[in-house]
Computed example of a mutant assay.
Amino acid sequence: MTLTVWLTFLVAALLISVSPGAGAVNSMSSGLRYGVRKSLPTIAGQQFGYGVQIVLVGAGLGAIVASSNTALMVIKWIGVVYLIWLGIQKWREQPVEATRADLSGFSPRQQFWNGALVNLTNPKATIFLIALFPQFLVAGAAHGQQLATMGATLILVDILVMVGYALLASQLFRFMTTPKRQRQMNRVFGGLFVTAAVALASFKRA
């Protein structure tokens, strides 16, 4: 992969990550509640899920999922249900004392797997990667190395963007000093999770 091709792919990767989606909502929700540092397990989990998608596509299994309506529909509706569940949980979440040092219920392992499931249950990522990768593969060159480069680029860019989203959301914490404001923000993010679920439910392959 030449530098020019890689830079073009880098721009595409940046646009993909910046585009709001379930991962961005999840990162912002975690950043608002826990702060940037404690959002890292969530972001790491999302990258694990993203990485699995990349490996599946690179190994050719993504093509099998993409060609099977049954497999695609099962993954799709698992993702829809999971996002709705996250939305309901966020909507019902109780206000907490306005100091992050005393926040309860934080589990890095749970945050990691929550983040992983958000990306693992998103078939749009599989379809997108199958459509994206061939556009940048150079014929005659080793595909493995090219796919590894593109996969690493996607993940590194997504990490930076998701940390940025978490940082942006964490700045809102200073305004979340009253139970009323916390409930309002929880319901905003709960609604965003459900909106992401509706968007996923309406997704149809071309």
Rank of each mutant, 00 (worst) to 15 (best):
T2I: 07
T4Q: 03
V5S: 09
V5M: 14
W6G: 02
W6T: 14
L7H: 05
L10W: 06
L14F: 15
S17K: 03
S17C: 10
P20C: 05
G21P: 07
G21I: 11
A22P: 13
G23R: 10
V25G: 07
V25A: 13
S27I: 04
S27L: 03
M28D: 08
S29D: 14
S29W: 05
S30E: 03
S30P: 13
G31E: 05
G31P: 08
L32M: 10
R33V: 06
G35L: 02
G35E: 04
V36W: 00
R37T: 03
R37G: 01
L40K: 00
P41N: 09
T42D: 00
I43H: 02
A44M: 11
G45S: 08
Q46E: 10
Q46F: 07
Q47D: 09
Q47V: 10
F48W: 02
F48N: 05
V52D: 09
V52R: 01
Q53G: 14
L56W: 12
L61Y: 13
G62E: 06
I64G: 02
V65P: 03
V65L: 15
A66L: 14
A66W: 03
N69M: 10
N69H: 01
T70N: 06
A71E: 11
I75G: 09
G79W: 03
G79M: 09
G79T: 09
L83W: 05
I84A: 05
W85T: 11
I88N: 00
I88C: 07
Q89G: 11
K90E: 14
K90V: 14
K90P: 12
E93M: 15
P95Q: 11
V96T: 13
E97V: 15
A98S: 15
T99K: 02
R100M: 13
A101C: 00
A101R: 00
F106V: 01
P108V: 15
P108A: 11
R109D: 05
R109W: 13
Q111T: 11
F112I: 13
F112N: 01
G115D: 08
A116G: 12
V118E: 12
N119H: 13
N122P: 03
P123T: 06
A125C: 10
I127F: 10
F128D: 08
F128R: 01
F128G: 10
I130N: 12
F133K: 02
F133V: 14
F133G: 04
Q135S: 08
L137E: 05
G140F: 09
A142W: 02
H143P: 12
H143N: 11
G144R: 06
G144A: 12
L147M: 11
A148F: 12
T149K: 01
T149M: 12
T149N: 04
T149Y: 09
I155P: 00
L156H: 02
L156R: 00
D158A: 10
L160V: 13
V163L: 10
G164V: 04
G164R: 08
Y165W: 09
A166F: 06
S170I: 08
S170V: 06
Q171G: 15
F173A: 12
R174D: 07
R174G: 08
T177Q: 02
T177I: 00
P179N: 02
R181Q: 11
Q182V: 10
Q184Y: 09
Q184P: 05
M185L: 15
N186S: 12
R187E: 14
F189I: 09
L192Y: 06
A199H: 04
A201M: 14
S202P: 03
K204F: 01
R205C: 03
R205A: 12
R205P: 09
A206G: 14
A206D: 11
